[in-house]
Amino acid sequence: MSTHFFADTSVMLGRSLRHVTRSMDTIITVTIMPIAFMLLFVYVFGGAIKAGAGHYVNYLMPGILLIAIASGIAYTAFRLFTDLQSGIFERFHSMPIARSSVLWGHVLTSLAANMISVVVIVLVGLLIGFRSSAGVLAWLAVVGILVLFTLTLTWIAVIAGLSAKSADGAGAFAYPIIFLPFISSAFVPTASMPGPVRAFAENQPVTSIVDTIRALFARQPVGHDIWIALAWCAGVLVVAYVLAMMAYRRKIA
């Protein structure tokens, strides 16, 4: 039944995007929190943090974007959970449509909504002094990594949305992910951290992603970091996708 996949997915995407645009509060929540972190770190803690030359917001930006995405996907889990609860998920599944379009509609919506908040945050960053010397290719690479990161987290959100028992539970999985950038190179260089914390920070996925994006923004060589970052994202994406499909089969069995 893949014949209608694209047509059906576009209907699902249109529906889910309406949900996003009709609850602007969710977009605002998703962007306000990272922007608040950005202002807090730049204007309150920034003076005390030694993170190399240049404006601290340049150092901060990659981590802030990842935090925004990590909090944005909680709504994907929530929307999926609501669909299951309301019975509309079952209605779609009793119809002659490409069944996978039901999930893909949510996944693409997540991508669109998160890219909107990324753009908003970068614009606010520009206002408070964020500057990048990156060329078109480097920007494309940044967008590519953010899209991959969003897809990875979105499939984790799909697992949560499909298996949650309550609406709160559906979003709760995002908290540890939102927290990961704090124990990474996102806000301060890992060299300043005590041994075990530093070991964790340097070997968890966020640090490699943050370092790669920061290097791309600053027009510096990305080194090995980009491969580590891509491997993390791709690896977790595959695992999350497989687990999401298992959760999905359990749901429709």
Binding site: R15, S86, G87, I88, E90, R91, S94, M95, P96, I97
Partner: peptide, 30 residues
Amino acid sequence: RESISLTGQFAAVDEILTGRENLIMIARLR
């Protein structure tokens, strides 16, 4: 699924869309 249609025990409608949008959505999917 091509032969049937289901009205489940509990109304399965999209709360955030309007009534008309709900119907159009189903029509497009069909």
